[in-house]
Nucleic acid binder design. Structure first.
Lengths: 249, 249
DNA sequence: CCGTAGACTTCCACTGGACGGAAGGACCTT
DNA sequence: AAGGTCCTTCCGTCCAGTGGAAGTCTACGG
């Protein structure tokens, strides 16, 4: 930057990224003022940068004058590494699972202590779920989250257990010690389950996807209840997860 | 920019976007030198910008020292607007189509004169196709491309017809006048077809998806040949496209 | 073991692109 | 008409950005 900078040390690059990152799941479109505030930039500076980003297709403007992420960023984002391979390979297996169960099927990976949903299939008849592709839900309240944390390196797991564990429903488990027990159990059992810990009326089962010795993703399914057919679901999930792992080579 | 700029007029923002856009389907990971060359930047300048982008999580570095698009850009890209809604809504219909035909199913939108594949379903038994989610194929050689151009504003269509039309297979249509005739025909028929224009041994049919009066996307299917059941495929596609349009509200 | 090549990293003097307060619209609601 | 909120443009100041050059690190061949 040059000129009378209000925040020395803030580079143009960091400001650009801040503007792009100002969008999130809850705020997919923002006005100029909102963008400026969220990126912590003076209005006129934001205006100038945003105008250029818009000109370049990194942002776009809706008919209402609000800004949204541009198609060019979609192109770029889709190339982010881990996701591409796993998603590509897993896609047919997710369909098979969906076809067999008509329940919502999830594919998730771990990014640090975050759990990223990278693909999802659900139909009208499925249990309504909160997840969206690209969203991150609390790991401790989801099947895929628990699986990924159970197989994470110890330092990551410790960090995740030490972070605040929000209570989402009355059934959410928020005691680190109890969660740690569950994670150990998951390694033994080979699958994780949740019972209304994320949404009332929704239970889930999830299994790890192995590529060689490493767990690269988790595959999960959401159903109204587990009583009847947990065994059947776990079996189907494991078959699919093995298939994906094998295809990953 | 400031200092001894080699290219006056190139702003930091445009350089940042150029670096991010240097990645594409064929080059998902690049070395520093490659990135600099593709973004047309001096090596040391590229190095500095890339280092900061990496620090910010917009890029990431593989174990081999190459650069890839970072997870943060994935988060951002997934928020790009049209895609999210249409993809979300269309997903179940794509499954239905796939289940009914076991052929590769495509969902694409137009972005200027480009055709973006925003979703795809294909199984092992489907005809192998070149498309990947996030890729752009020559519009004049694909069913969805023709549909989208047929319904595009006249200025866009003119621009698309005036741009170089590459011959991909011996059957690719590269005469603007003949393509224009086809596009007009598509408006009348309500669907587009291609016969080995993109890959030998692959034919396609595609229909528009309407939201109100506007065509917001195209739905296509790829099969080994059209002789037998073009009518059946068009009917199935139209049902699905209407369903998606209705769900979009 | 050394020389050459290629890719990456760091340094630093120069300067023009970036900064942002201020003023001027546009478009609401009261 | 007055007040509010949001967007857009202008322009004097000046430091962040620039990129050639030099240094480092591997890899390979003789």
């Amino acid at each position: 930057m040059a000129g009378r900078t209000s925040q020395p040390g803030a580079t143009v690059v960091s400001r650009t990224v801040a503007l792009l990152s100002a969008f999130d799941e809850a705020h997919p479109h923002l006005t100029l003022t909102e963008l400026a505030r969220r990126a912590d930039l003076p209005l006129s500076t934001a205006h100038r940068l945003i105008a250029e980003l818009t000109r370049l297709g990194a942002l776009a403007r809706t008919s209402t004058g609000e800004y949204v992420v541009g198609p060019r960023m979609w192109d770029v984002g889709i190339l982010a590494p881990v996701q591409t391979d796993v998603r590509e390979v897993a896609s047919p297996f997710l369909h098979d699972l969906y076809a067999a169960t008509l329940a919502t099927v999830h594919l998730a990976v771990r990014d640090g202590t975050r759990v990223l949903y990278i693909d999802r299939i659900s139909g009208q008849r499925s249990v309504p779920v909160v997840s969206k592709i690209g969203s991150r839900l609390p790991w401790h309240a989801t099947g895929v989250g628990k699986v990924l944390m159970a197989h994470a390196p110890e330092d990551v797991r410790a960090k995740a257990l030490a972070s605040p564990l929000k209570r989402v429903t009355p059934y959410t488990i928020t005691q680190p010690s109890r969660l740690r027990d569950q994670l150990e159990r998951i390694l033994v059992d080979g699958y994780a389950a949740t019972v209304e810990e994320m949404s009332l009326g929704a239970c889930s089962v999830a299994v790890p996807i192995h590529q060689g010795d490493e767990v690269v993703a988790a595959l999960g399914i959401v159903v109204p209840n587990l009583r009847r057919d947990k065994g059947r679901l776990v079996a189907a999930l494991k078959v699919a997860a093995n298939g994906i792992g094998r295809s990953l080579g």
